[in-house]
Amino acid sequence: MREQSLGWHLALAAFKAGKGNGELLAKLVKVLYLAWYLQEAGFGAVEREVYLDAEHILDAAARGASRDVWIIETADCFPIIAILDLHERQLLGAPVCAVDKAEARVVRFGRSESRAPW
């Protein structure tokens, strides 16, 4: 879990330094969705608006890719950090079967036409 957490925070740090990329963006998006599904299963919570804010910030980072600009401004990081912190707590408290179910939901969501799980 610590290694995963470090990877998420390093991904965000790369974006803050303007050195993000598609792989790192995918990693942050996956955490966003995993946290949501684990929250729905009863493992920790942040307000829905935090997810929406994080989604908008990650969408903006993705749009920058067309200009080869992979950045998230430091001032915009709070919602993403809140999600990362929540997900760390979730992984400490949720049983493996709940995490596995959340990961399966992320995969199903990725194959769907839905815009967001919330």
Rank of each mutant, 00 (worst) to 15 (best):
V50P: 00
Q4G: 12
W118M: 11
A54P: 01
A17R: 13
A82F: 01
A65P: 03
Y33M: 06
L86W: 05
R48D: 13
D53E: 15
R67T: 04
E73M: 05
D76R: 10
G20K: 04
V50W: 00
G93H: 09
F15K: 07
D76F: 02
V99P: 06
Y33T: 06
E113C: 03
A54L: 01
V96R: 15
R2L: 13
V31L: 02
L34S: 04
F109T: 06
D85I: 03
G18F: 08
D68G: 01
G44K: 11
R115D: 15
I71P: 00
C97D: 14
A17P: 10
R2Q: 14
S5M: 06
S66M: 06
A14F: 10
L86M: 09
M1E: 14
S114P: 00
E88V: 07
R89Q: 13
C97E: 15
T74F: 10
R105V: 05
G7Y: 06
V107E: 14
G22D: 05
Q90I: 09
D76G: 01
S66W: 05
Q39V: 02
G7M: 10
G20F: 04
R67K: 11
E113N: 09
L38E: 09
P79K: 02
V106H: 08
L34E: 11
V99G: 08
F43R: 10
V99Q: 12
F109L: 13
A26S: 14
D53P: 01
G20M: 04
E55A: 12
A82I: 00
L32N: 08
H87G: 01
L25W: 06
E103W: 03
E47G: 04
A17Y: 09
M1H: 14
V99C: 09
L24A: 07
L25D: 03
C97Q: 14
V46C: 08
F78V: 07
I81P: 00
F15N: 08
G64N: 03
A102G: 11
G7V: 02
K30C: 00
L84P: 03
I80Y: 00
E40V: 04
G110R: 12
E23P: 01
S114Y: 09
V46S: 07
A116N: 10
R63C: 03
R63D: 12
D85G: 04
S66H: 06
P117V: 09
A13P: 00
K101T: 12
G22L: 04
H56W: 11
S114Q: 12
L6A: 14
A26I: 02
R111L: 11
L91Q: 13
L12E: 12
A41V: 07
W8C: 00
V50E: 02
L6R: 15
Y33D: 11
A35S: 15
R2N: 13
G20Q: 05
D68A: 09
L10F: 05
E73P: 01
I57S: 08
E23C: 04
G64M: 04
S114V: 06
A94C: 09
Q39E: 14
K27T: 11
I57T: 15
A104I: 02
